[in-house]
Design a protein around this nucleic acid. Structure first.
Lengths: 209, 209
DNA sequence: GTGTACCGGTACTCGACCGTATCGGTACAC
DNA sequence: GTGTACCGATACGGTCGAGTACCGGTACAC
């Protein structure tokens, strides 16, 4: 979706003819996102990003007016779902696969979500960028997976638990660190899917145990 | 006013004989927690708290060495579960009641959780205080509710979904703002319990299997 | 009434960071 | 070779907040 006309360095940065290559730009973005994960949004400094990428602060300010705009740009460079391409032919297996992917993804981008968690309530544009970058793509591909399950007749389209699946998965990923003090790894998430998500959807042979 | 009772102000603040009454101390705590909810942990200022409580910054620093220690003390003053006292005699109704309580509670303390979400990853003591103040009490009373359900024979003690209930509830509360862009109100949470939690526990009457 | 110790207020030091300005160097156009 | 425009480095101004120091006022002890 929205495949950005992929020719020349026509990225966000390059409305003027900047000497910053796209790879270089991505380095900046990676650096700032990494700093956010490590230190939190408020603690990220332009000096820090400049230092870690060995560029000048001036260079950053030439391309992006302010720190929030820079961060937003960095987030927008990441609109790819980690669940894309999952299609095993079985809804239960798809969901287990999603759990595994989410678990791998989790330590990285959960930190991002966590770190931006509050900044987002202060800056609406940042909130939109975050949702577009990390949430909407995942929800879209997740919904596609569920939709295929419905079409295959594995579950009813009006299954009441259906609409809560995305919130449920995002939820445990965010809740585990607070509840148990550790990140939600793939193993935990797969067990969660087996123990809760599938039974809630009526997809298990009862509570077999 | 309020010449202290015989046992004296035995709170954190008063290892020395401070003139700060316990009510006054709680005002400080309320103020700083409110500021955290509003502006985030990093943006909280001692000047701000002092101003909003009409006390001197010196007074705060006399009682607590640093800002983190002050916040930790404020958190520790709040170790009360909002689920305490729920006991309808039916596990399903208990859980619905928990959902309602959590929904009311959510806008307030979810903001706290959100606002401290990242600061917690930097300061271990803060993390512990947060868990002890906002998470453990709720989990404890929630587990008591589940335990009573087991004892009444409503569910099996080895129900695999059991151990995930706390994470599940905390999860959707934290996920809803990100997924849907709005807080989890009581109505939403009750519907969630009916659509997901109870079916996952095998407790539904509406939809068989 | 005198001493003590804490309160509130204010002013201060010190450091951090945002965003700007300035400067020499250099890739590229022509 | 000359001009242009961007790069990196550095330095600077301005703001803001943590934590300290000092002050006069006052409640309480004895």
């Amino acid at each position: 979706m929205t495949s950005q006309a992929a020719d020349g360095p026509e990225t966000v940065a390059a409305s003027r003819r900047s000497k910053i290559s796209r790879e270089r730009e991505q380095e900046f973005f990676d650096a700032v996102l990494e700093q956010i994960r490590e230190c939190g949004y408020e603690a990220v400094t332009m000096d820090g990003v400049a230092a870690s990428t060995r560029c000048s602060k001036s260079t950053l300010y030439r391309q992006w007016k302010t720190k929030p705009q820079f961060v937003v740009a960095a987030l927008r460079s990441r609109r790819v779902s980690k669940f894309e391409g999952i299609d095993t032919g079985s809804l239960a297996d798809d969901l287990r696969e999603v759990a595994r992917a989410a678990g791998r993804w989790s330590t990285g981008d959960t930190k991002l979500l966590q770190a931006l968690g509050h900044a987002v309530t202060q800056d609406e544009e940042l909130a939109m960028a975050l949702r577009e970058a990390l949430v909407h793509p995942e929800i879209a591909s997740l919904n596609a997976i569920l939709q295929r399950g419905v079409e295959r007749g594995e579950i009813a389209a009006d299954q009441p638990a259906l609409e809560y699946i995305p919130a449920q998965l995002f939820g445990v990923i965010r809740a585990r660190p607070v509840v148990d003090g550790e990140y939600a790894d793939p193993d935990y998430l797969v067990r969660f899917v087996d123990a809760v998500v599938l039974p809630a959807l009526g997809l298990t042979s009862g509570r077999g145990t």
